[in-house]
Write a protein that binds this DNA or RNA. Structure first.
Lengths: 203, 203
DNA sequence: CGCATAGTTGACTACGCTCAACCCTGGTGG
DNA sequence: CCACCAGGGTTGAGCGTAGTCAACTATGCG
């Protein structure tokens, strides 16, 4: 999933883009705020969240290196959610108008943007798919399968289990139990925040 | 949410596009099939579904008039899900290469496509948000709020409750009970497949 | 007329949530 | 250097709600 060819942007857009350094917890934009730009994470981690009318918070997206966010603002004129840096991050800010103007002139750019959006869609689809699995340990197992980071089946969690649980639609307790259960069943091993997924052909 | 300005497409793409009439239940493309085109529903209803490794089926999207589907194929070279017409439908087929080639030349087209994608993203986000509401009647209530079709708060279901239940992550039984419960509470009225949502300021 | 399917209702079960206590780690300050 | 504290994570007990299985009705179609 390489979305990294955004340096092939036309010079006028390149000029308009700015790099921003944000600290952990910093709010990049608020829900409802006037949308003026689209962003790409260069490194770090940014959470996109939406506050519902009842005050609950839903994490819609977690953007990491080379992923885009604030994309809703490109069409709508206000952001539909808030963007908050979870760790110190470097982000590139592309002003909305400059980007839209540059689009026609830059075919590569259009395709890159397309790829960014499809990546977001794909991620949402996967999360939705996960929610259809009722049994906690199976949902977790599938989540882990989607997040394997190397050929050995390793996954390292870079955010608190609390949040991962929420992403999965579970309470921390349930996630915890599911993990111990999977470990007891010999399907995974845990060491600190690293998990190794054992073979077990996707059945 | 008007995505209807796709008639402003450049002539060469217009020429490549074809209109297709499909019958209820017809498979437009299969999951895993080579992706050759992107589609827009002119009228009717098309379901996008994905079959997981375990054989379950997840509805990812339901495209209605003026909505697009098969968008994953624009980047990936195979479709990530199947497209099945739920009712007799008319769809416009834009060959992938023609569309991608036309993009640079047609700024309006790029923006329309952008809007189509963002609409899909928004819809997925809403469904995800719904899943975070545990209590069945509340989830249903919120679903209804999102689907009000006129100022009177009316909603008419054009597909079986069975499917709507699945979309919501419920069994038909649970949805049925939730609806009767909402009706008893005076929050909605039902007459056949039409539901009216009573005032009750979004609390 | 009969069959298949959608929808509803009931009784029981099961699984995830809630509340609570506890451990452990890292950070802070005396 | 240790005492304290806060927060994340784990474990336990009990509860509640959606799932499951089943029976029944209504509707549409052959």
């Amino acid at each position: 999933m390489d979305l990294s060819n955004l340096d092939t942007v036309p010079p006028n857009l390149q000029a308009a883009a700015t790099v921003q350094q944000v600290i952990a917890g910093q709010v990049i934009f608020q829900q409802g705020e006037a949308a003026t730009a689209f962003f790409i994470v260069q490194n770090g981690r940014v959470k996109l969240a939406r506050y519902t009318d009842e005050g609950r918070m839903v994490t819609l997206q977690v953007a990491r290196s080379r992923e885009g966010f604030g994309v809703g603002g490109l069409i709508s004129d206000t952001y539909s959610g808030a963007a908050i840096a979870e760790v110190p991050s470097q982000i590139i800010r592309y002003p909305k108008v400059a980007l839209l103007n540059a689009l026609p002139a830059a075919p590569d750019l259009a395709e890159t943007l397309l790829a960014l959006l499809l990546h977001i869609i794909r991620t949402l689809e996967i999360r939705l798919e996960l929610r259809d699995i009722r049994a906690s340990h199976q949902r977790v197992l599938r989540y882990l399968r989607y997040h394997v980071q190397d050929e050995e089946g390793r996954i390292v969690f870079d955010r608190p289990l609390k949040e991962i649980a929420a992403d999965l639609g579970f309470t921390p307790e349930t996630l915890s139990r599911a993990l111990t259960r999977l470990e007891e069943a010999g399907l995974i091993s845990r060491q600190e925040r690293q998990i190794t997924l054992h073979s077990s052909p996707a059945a």
